[in-house]
Design a binder for these strands. Sequence first.
DNA 1: CGAGGTTAAATCACGTCATTAATTAAGCCC
DNA 2: GGGCTTAATTAATGACGTGATTTAACCTCG
Lengths: 409, 409
Amino acid sequence: MREHVTPERRRGTVRDLRRDNRSVLLWSLYFDQPCTRQELSRATGLSPASVSNVVRELIEEGVVAEAGAIDSDGGRPRVLLRMNSDYGYVIGVDVGETRVRVELFDLAMTERARVDSPLDPREHGVTTIVERIHEGLSAVLADAGVDASAVLGVGIGVPGVVEQGDEVLVHGQTYGWEAVPLERLLRAGTDLPLHIDNGANTMGRAEMWFGAGQGAQHAVVCLIGSGVGASIIAHGRTHRGSTSSAGEWGHTTVVVGGRSCRCGSTGCLEAYVGAEAVLDRYGRTPGQDEETALAALLDAAGRGEGDAARVLEETALYLGVGLADLINLFNPERIILGGWAGLLLGERLLPAIRDAARSNSLKHAFSSTSIELGKLGPEAVALGAATLPIELFLNGAQLSVADRRRSAG
Amino acid sequence: MREHVTPERRRGTVRDLRRDNRSVLLWSLYFDQPCTRQELSRATGLSPASVSNVVRELIEEGVVAEAGAIDSDGGRPRVLLRMNSDYGYVIGVDVGETRVRVELFDLAMTERARVDSPLDPREHGVTTIVERIHEGLSAVLADAGVDASAVLGVGIGVPGVVEQGDEVLVHGQTYGWEAVPLERLLRAGTDLPLHIDNGANTMGRAEMWFGAGQGAQHAVVCLIGSGVGASIIAHGRTHRGSTSSAGEWGHTTVVVGGRSCRCGSTGCLEAYVGAEAVLDRYGRTPGQDEETALAALLDAAGRGEGDAARVLEETALYLGVGLADLINLFNPERIILGGWAGLLLGERLLPAIRDAARSNSLKHAFSSTSIELGKLGPEAVALGAATLPIELFLNGAQLSVADRRRSAG
DNA sequence: CGAGGTTAAATCACGTCATTAATTAAGCCC
DNA sequence: GGGCTTAATTAATGACGTGATTTAACCTCG
């Protein structure tokens, strides 16, 4: 395809028009249900006739169902409509450091089944992970009593960069993965539609759809664990960049020539605010896992023990600087602090973090941003991953159960 | 309007369909002319019948004109089509530190008139600037012999943040401007449609449309002068953020607690690579302007005099770090280094800058990015500003001369 | 209990769109 | 000047959303 100077455009037909209008209606109903045809008309701008036509088709397909009625003031009662949560199912997979989690949700995002497979943190071979995912998919389908053909798709959150080209390649440095064709490997054991994305991005999606990011068009979801990353949302969409590696906030430099980072560079934000780095600074009891150790550090600071308070003060400073960089560069309306360490640190240090961010941001940019804690825990990676097929479905991609059943037939 | 969880969507009708398809065709012809109807059909995907219909309308409106023919191989000759450069005119305005530049272009972006109004760098009062712009608009119209009703619009590049709300407000800290309603003030003296944007963004547009950024969907245009800023391009569009202040790259922190910056903070990139900062580091002859002084610094380094080489080596390091931050966060396919100081530094130091960027970027992200010098000089701010009304026109906004003539009638 | 009124929803007629198929136009060659 | 080739236009068709009209589903009142 010939290069484009500005946003890529493609010609449309009346079929596209219908698909897009139906999509407008579905998104509206999905996030605001139940509601009436008249409410849908107001919310979408479509005429009552169009709403009636589109809703009839959706009811015929089983995507939407009537859900009771509201009495009118002497006139015909209004019928309430809702998504049919049993129309189809989605699966979210979280490939974490210590376990692979697989969750099956219905269309209302109600969890129907969950399976966790523990992982040896020293053993992240591709073959192992692929097996665990396959096992998990089979297990949740069985547990939920759901046929594979009823699954709209599987979203998978993985560590590292997910390059979406002719073939999906995963570059997971912390796992030692280099250009792993994960989708192809997974397809060897399942026919379910697969959608693979970076775990920080799927966490970001979860906060945007169901958590602290709801309603924001421009946001950054910052995740702090052992490592540090971010999901950048612009115009309601995840910004991925040209090869889907955007969001490596943890490897932006805050002190040129500063502390060594595990990525091989120096002065990275992660070397100052990543949980592993903070604990290295403070020292920790041998054999203690990071989460316990960080909680202990926070307790020690609360009791005024040793250097704990000073270490946390420094951490809040660097974290604030990192957030200020995002504020100056992106101008988000909201910054959401998440990740297991981000939530722990944030609960205690949010005022200090905000102060540091204010000091390092331009006045005007800072004044139009809020800094908040995420509402969803680290286990929302799978939930966020499950939104990947939901989005395609709501956009009218050829993804309906009927379509998949026809394809299989 | 009710909050949206994901990208905002609105319903369309067949009239929107037509406008959008016509827009697809216009963009194609604008950047690839002259060409035939068949080429337009291939490039846009529209059927020959649709191309014929849309082109006929555009010819009737005077937007497009036939421009000769190409013999066929025994068949009907192909007619070449081109934009009618005299269909309408646009004006670009560059509000710089030492002058206000106003340029009038035809649709082919050929300059038809230009006026520069020198400014006392200590005198950036709003009233002065507004007067200069008004004078410039009148002057270029007179010089080009163009009637005001033939102007599609005026694009204006200004320093600082341009907040597009109910009212356009300009916050230009270096000018001492705080929430200046520039559009309203300008409208008191002209009926021309006005489009105001930050000057770094308009420079970015120029490089994307006509310069080093052509063909890129994800890019960052970095501008280095006394100050430092960037224009972020995602999916071919300028990323502005929630209140249009995105791109403040110069105020991201590269050394926490480092050098004082003129913004009031410490450790900003601008304090390390802005021309003023670099010259302060090295020292300069009293009374010498920055551009001359920086050129002298580069010369001194070439001759091995004093600390010149060391200062430039340090500058390349910090600049590379700043670029690495952009690479890690945005994953652009191209980084364009511009601004008067950026071009000066880049001519000599590009290899060192790239090395520093490589050292501070994640391997994969760096490998998919190129770092290049801008092809357009600082005077492209006005050219880029002039693309603002062109974009609206090509998108089919109610902006045609016929529309404006009807509105004025 | 049926008629009238009110309000919601469905259906119909219409205008607009793009595409496919058919037709016309503009050359060249013999 | 007729036949052929290729480009461009026009006609017929099917799809769309909307405004207008009709039908449906209640409630109230006599």
